[in-house]
Nucleic acid binder design. Structure first.
Lengths: 188, 188
DNA sequence: TACGATAATGAGTGTCGACTCAATTTTTCA
DNA sequence: TGAAAAATTGAGTCGACACTCATTATCGTA
């Protein structure tokens, strides 16, 4: 991702990818408190190698967040293409919550992203995408006009976070989202 | 709180209360990751004393949670007496979120309480109280009949959590809650 | 292929935080 | 008041984890 001045050596690039992949798994399963050593083991690499590529644990986390955000943005785009505009926003909520319940990482992405790690542009992109979803839904008459982006993002983050830490099962996810959708919706 | 077999020595009781008070402050400000030593300092007590009263950090946390839960339950009772039944639930949501935004402890109470620490009876009490609020609101026609306790608790937890980790300002709290209330409400 | 540059290795360092315990102080009560 | 019981003290243990660095291995190229 960092557009280096000099090209990377082949083994370095290979290890970098292995580390990123391992880290995504480990942090998804164990949360961001998982140790760097566990990441190194899973990647089949010495711990020093991890720190050569990512001088700080926070750097590693940040890189993963960027990847996740990018994927989410492309999810949004896909949804916009394939779903009627009125329902794309709801679909996005639903899939994101389900994903968060599986991948703990998503949680920290939405919750801490803005505060602790700083990936302003990546987060900004996601916000713009969701805003697009929101205004299409409003144009389609599916969502109230007096709802704004900040509370939509807030609800998104809150519900994901709640689903993860509260261990909601699918039934509860659906019911809770139903309330939220009713709150957003223009229909009675 | 623990109905001991033998009465406690005067100094022991005094210190126990100091510790509890200090811990509540410290954990509210710094979150539950704050060190036991900081609690001891704030209480003006050696660290060994903290561990004599609460053999484990989790025990200390649990005791504080119990106190918080008890206070919340009595808040609910007060609200039930002083507010029209249709609005008491909404009022509870509003005050709890505002409190959570100030006291980080509330967060962990609602989020982790069920999972990591185990205070089943205390949590159960709060649930029963909120359930009372919910059914009165439904009887008053303010809340939909097809909304059930689990999603109400889930939303409560999620919104508090979101407000804390996302650092919502009051404006955002109000707007987000407005969406939730609209979702719960029987009125269009 | 040989050599300089780049990367990998993993034992070691420093720090922090939960928890212990032998020595000391404070209460309590006969 | 005085001694036994109960409580406090705080330096110390233990383990976990982020991060370092001298040594060794690998890569790219002339």
């Amino acid at each position: 991702m960092p557009p280096d001045d000099k090209p990377m050596r082949a083994d370095a690039l290979r290890n970098r990818n292995r580390i990123l992949q391992a880290a995504e798994q480990v942090f998804s399963e164990r949360g961001p408190a998982a140790s760097t050593e566990e990441v190194a083991n899973r990647a089949g690499v010495a711990i020093g190698t991890v720190f050569r590529h990512f001088p700080t644990k926070a750097d590693l986390l940040r890189e993963i967040m960027k990847g996740l955000l990018a994927r989410l943005v492309s999810d949004v785009e896909a949804l916009r293409r394939d779903s009627p505009p009125g329902t794309a926003l709801f679909a996005f909520f639903t899939t994101l919550v389900a994903q968060a319940a599986r991948q703990k990482t998503v949680l920290d992405l939405l919750a801490e992203a803005g505060t602790e790690l700083s990936i302003p542009d990546a987060v900004g992109m996601l916000e713009r995408s969701v805003d697009g979803l929101l205004t299409s839904a409003q144009d389609a008459g599916t969502v109230r006009r007096d709802v704004h982006l900040p509370e939509v993002m807030a609800l998104l983050g809150a519900v994901c976070q709640g689903a993860v830490t509260g261990g909601w099962d699918e039934r509860l996810q659906v019911r809770t989202l139903a309330v939220v959708f009713a709150g957003l919706g223009a229909a009675a």
